[in-house]
Design a protein around this nucleic acid. Structure first.
Lengths: 366, 366
DNA sequence: TTGTACGCGTTATCAA
DNA sequence: TTGATAACGCGTACAA
């Protein structure tokens, strides 16, 4: 048996030293109920002297609240999740909450395991980027058991839980529209479209065209492709399937190869839209190795704004996501629930802005 | 009073359904003690049927172990900390541990508050990047109370706790030496040297020169400056104080300005060594805005390897830190302590490697 | 205003 | 092999 911690003062000892009951000590230390000033002073002094620190486990066991929020991220190592996490942590800290983190690596099995762990640890609520918009019984169950959930980045179909997302579709549509307005007609898109399958590209495009698809529960990169298609539709430009670069794994190397392929197409695109930061990185690598000049030979707009994009020459025009704000919003929605709000599920959509830098030029007359 | 969670099956209910005592149910569910196969089956079935999930709070209260590790990082949003955190989380998860995170923003007051919170939550151990190598009574106290500590990135002076660091001094010395070997004589260094004060530069250099300073408890960027000085000493090159760019805040803008100043010096340096990733970013920005060609007009080596460094043209030669490994090591040291190791404090120093890319050239004859 | 006594969900002890 | 019962440290009726 492992030895107990030494010196760990409990409320009982504080009470004894102060010559009062544990109830009284608890009242002054916990800040609930009455106590005379004299006793307050004595108890506080004793607590101080013993280095008393309340045991939040014991408190949680009885109150049913742990003041801890569980977060299921995809991968905290990525700038995307780590920025969001920072937002969550800041708001949580300000309210005295702890943050328990887990990584799903976008794997449903991992997410399941993570949720299980967090629930066992009795977190007050779950902030999660769901891996799968359909198979989410574990989340439904958690909800039913009274554990509030806030989703971020994407939303499970029909899950009655709060959510914060970003207006992917619109931002993408506007980015593409600005490219079209600059005279571009052959605009390629490079997107990770495998991990969360929404079917094959051709039928997806067809469904967008016939307006027979609901974008709300699509994964972000699919929503971005959605906007890409819409912009083309609005401008009456036909979509060339060959210009849609579908990357399988979430890997820089895969992105680079796919970009290479797009840029070597006969009838090379005059503009490229990358659907996330990793795609942009892969594209840049491909572009420079091909010796293409940005923006003269190729215009580029990327989704996600990474630090290096602003000091590249030329700097990259990008759709910037308010990541920290997304985390803060998620945390606030959660805290609101935890303080008893019973409103129907709220869905906050954050607006995106296009930061115009130097990577877009007018298409050359051809 | 907030309503309790619905449906939350306790071990009592499982026991009742299975027709056994809570003690027996606990034994089979918790995996300790004996139970006949028949009873095991019955209990497991009941648990399954009720969707039973153990309450780790209650377990922790009695066992004194929460299977939770607390981490105090500087800022999880930075690639540095988030990579380390990922390493910690992976190892922790594999052993069934949770990870509770906090940010100190390198502020002692924040760190104090964070440690307090984590301790109240009864974490089994603390993995921390200490803000201050001297004033760390809170850490000593935690240690004395039986909460193991693993430090990372830097070490508190005289704290008897495990630590993982990186060989900053050597890596820096070797990087500078390689520059010297390439014929460079005027090598500038750009480093953040304010946040953790080790005195003014001149006297620091003097103390390194006279070998009257112990580098172990210096902050990383000071250790890197230490290596810079040593390399010069070894090569018999006099140090020009003007080539040491001291940046105050940890900010890209400050780095950029300081880099600009260094590169506009009469007798411009032929090589630049940046002491961390942010400094490198600031330097690149300055370099490109000055129109200096890397590596022909300026050779560059940066500490820290960020993704963009490999696809810049030319790619940047960099000292890469094994960040995830650092996190993993920290977690393993911690788990080892938690499983009862009573060995004296261990200090693991991870080696660094210089990844040579295209940003270094031989100095031109002058 | 204070103290007594019980309970939160689990593990640990010990007797059966 | 099993079960009654006492902890763990704290909050909270309720009585004093």
């Amino acid at each position: 048996m492992a030895e107990k911690r030494i010196d760990k003062a409990t409320i009982t000892e504080v009470a004894r030293l102060a010559g009062v009951s544990t109830a009284t000590a608890g009242r002054v230390l916990g800040g609930y109920g009455y106590a005379s000033d004299e006793i307050k002073k004595k108890v506080k002094a004793s607590a101080e002297r013993l280095g008393y620190r309340p045991n939040l486990l014991a408190r949680g066991l009885i109150t049913g609240k742990t003041k801890t929020i569980g977060v299921v991220a995809g991968d905290i190592q990525s700038p995307f999740y780590s920025s969001i996490l920072r937002g969550v942590a800041d708001v949580a800290r300000a309210e005295g909450f702890g943050v328990l983190i887990t990584n799903s690596d976008e794997l449903l099995a991992r997410e399941l395991e993570a949720v299980q762990l967090l629930l066992e640890k009795q977190v007050d609520g779950l902030i999660v980027a769901p891996c799968d918009t359909e198979r989410s019984d574990h989340l439904r169950k958690a909800l039913k058991e009274g554990c509030p959930i806030v989703q971020f980045d994407r939303m499970v179909n029909g899950l009655r839980a709060d959510a914060v997302t970003v207006d992917n579709r619109r931002a993408s549509r506007e980015a593409i529209a600005s490219l079209i307005e600059a005279g571009h007609r052959r605009i390629a898109i490079l997107a990770e479209l495998e991990r969360w399958d929404s079917g094959d590209i051709a039928s997806f495009v067809a469904r967008v065209t016939s307006r027979s698809i609901e974008p709300a529960n699509l994964f972000p990169s699919w929503q971005r492709l959605f906007g890409y298609v819409e912009a083309h539709l609005a401008a009456g430009i036909e979509i060339d399937r060959a210009l849609i670069g579908r990357v399988g794994a979430y890997s820089l190397e895969a992105a680079r190869l796919q970009a290479l392929q797009l840029l070597r197409l006969p009838g090379r695109p005059t503009a490229l839209f990358t659907a996330d930061g990793l795609m942009t990185a892969g594209a840049i690598d491909a572009i420079t190795s091909l010796g293409l000049a940005i923006p003269d030979e190729l215009s580029l707009i990327g989704f996600d704004d990474l630090d290096w994009m602003s000091f590249l020459k030329p700097a990259i025009t990008a759709v910037v996501q308010p990541l920290t704000a997304m985390g803060e919003t998620a945390a606030r929605l959660m805290l609101d629930r935890l303080s008893g709000s019973e409103s129907p599920p709220r869905h906050v959509t954050l607006e995106l802005s296009l930061t115009r830098r130097g990577s877009v030029a007018r298409a050359r007359l051809s």
